[in-house]
Nucleic acid binder design. Structure first.
Lengths: 272, 272
DNA sequence: CGGAAAATTGAGACTGATCAACCCCGGTGG
DNA sequence: CCACCGGGGTTGATCAGTCTCAATTTTCCG
């Protein structure tokens, strides 16, 4: 555990920036318990930040690096349920529980602040801090529900496109261009998250690359044709089937030709 | 909208029974805003109790009947995300949102109380009422996460067995024996909930029946062999494959022969 | 440099989706 | 009372998308 250095850029997305000295907030006339100066800790790739079932002692804003949330069902089924990046807060959704309901595992060397749970709960009582926190929580449950629907009714290619677009938009949210991203997670993690196998993910990435949607070398991913990816995401039919090697046309690949079928509810495996 | 009659048995599981006059609570020395006497309303089968995206004006404890929660993703994919029975509270998970994030649709004629959202929020501030409410909320997110893992990594038969066991235990929780249940939802709803097609659900139910796990006539379901169902749920291999008509042995069907493989994580499509 | 983990690629099997026909049952109106 | 009708449910045949198993390559790291 080290004393934190005021690393502004990485704090600028933090939920707690307004009340955290580390982020440069001025304590000013705040009452003592309203200002934070949390310690920060470093987790090595593969180490677990918090463990499912263990008491909730703190939450962990990700300063840099990244982590995955892993849920293990009573029967032993494991699944990645979320990816966390700088600005996200590990363990936040458990703030009102006795125990963490997922484990968080660092996917690379990752630095997080350590905000005691009492501080979180105290801040939740103050209306001005409550709202942003709730908004973050809601965004996460929204995301999880979208994932549920995706896994429940969309094809593999759609799900993967969804993830890539999501990662890109996260990337964008924290400044960098959304085009170039470094996947911190393994194919296995991606597969688990999407309810697929790692082979399928690998093949799909190759196919995306072969039709010019992306380029990928190991974990270096470039999104070449965001619109094309969106098309794949939105249209069940638009699963690119073209592993051929030749590149007769160098156009951005796959121009939207079909006016996007509204009401895909009919297409899915089952409706409501 | 009718004036509610004090129908104790149905109120006995209600989250609000301690503070609700309809449930027979004694207002006693409570401060005025702490006691409830909500109106109750009747929804016909198919009518929607609250709609996704609409402002949260109230929550709806189910008095009798049942409903499904339906989520519609931005792209139009629809999926049933939960089934609600007497004692459950429709819209409760949206208590801190501006808008409902799912729609609730009655699956049969259903009576719910109408608890204004302000009352809910007020009660959330009082520690003694906060806890049970949070517990309910957590139970739901736990359930939803289990569903996620189920859809993401379990086989169709396992998922269906899971649902049946879950319905049975819900049934039990509210008094009745868990053996006999009346499915309020259509095959389509079940399929949507489990991420399958209605045909698959139908076939699976037939197979379950053919191997003596259940009997089913229309929507009248009897669970003949709960242990067998659990085995199906827990063991990916134990998918009953035996549509044959003959019934050489009349034993409870499928005695557990294999010692349940621990760590099914290996078996699933992907691990964490 | 060597070994292990991660990723790719291929061939084949199998689950579950799709398409289609039929049935069952309750309701409606002649 | 019965014929018709429509929605929900069943069943069958077929097909496609993914999983599975296995071999190989690449990368990472000591």
């Amino acid at each position: 555990m080290t004393t934190p250095q005021a690393d502004k850029p990485s704090c600028s997305l933090c939920l707690f920036q307004r009340i955290c000295r580390n982020a440069g907030a001025t304590p000013a006339l705040d009452s003592p318990e309203r200002s934070l100066s949390p310690a920060s800790m470093l987790w090595r790739a593969g180490e677990t930040v918090h463990r499912q079932g263990r008491p909730v002692l703190a939450v962990f804003p990700v300063h840099d690096g990244s982590a995955k949330s892993v849920f293990e069902s009573p029967l032993g089924w494991r699944q990645v349920t979320a990816f966390a990046h700088p600005g996200d807060v590990l363990g936040l959704e458990d703030h009102d529980s006795q125990a963490h309901c997922t484990s968080a595992v660092a996917m690379q060397d990752t630095r997080c602040c350590v905000v005691p749970i009492e501080a979180v709960r105290a801040h939740l009582l103050r209306a001005e801090y409550r709202e942003p926190m709730l908004r973050t929580l809601r965004r996460n449950t929204e995301r999880e529900r979208t994932l549920l629907v995706a896994i429940g009714s969309m094809k593999a290619a759609q799900r993967l496109a969804m993830l890539l677009l999501d990662l890109a938009s996260e990337q964008r949210r924290r400044g960098n261009s959304g085009a170039a991203l470094t996947l911190a997670m393994s194919r296995n993690d991606i597969a688990s998250y999407l309810g697929l196998t790692l082979e399928t993910v690998s093949r799909l990435l190759a196919r995306f690359a072969s039709v010019g949607l992306i380029t990928i070398r190991q974990r270096q991913l470039h999104i070449v044709d965001p619109a094309g990816l969106s098309a794949v995401y939105e249209d069940p039919e638009r699963v690119p089937i073209r592993p051929p090697a030749a590149e007769p046309d160098s156009s951005p690949a796959i121009a939207p030709s079909k006016p996007l079928p509204l009401r895909p509810g009919t297409a899915g495996p089952a409706l409501a």
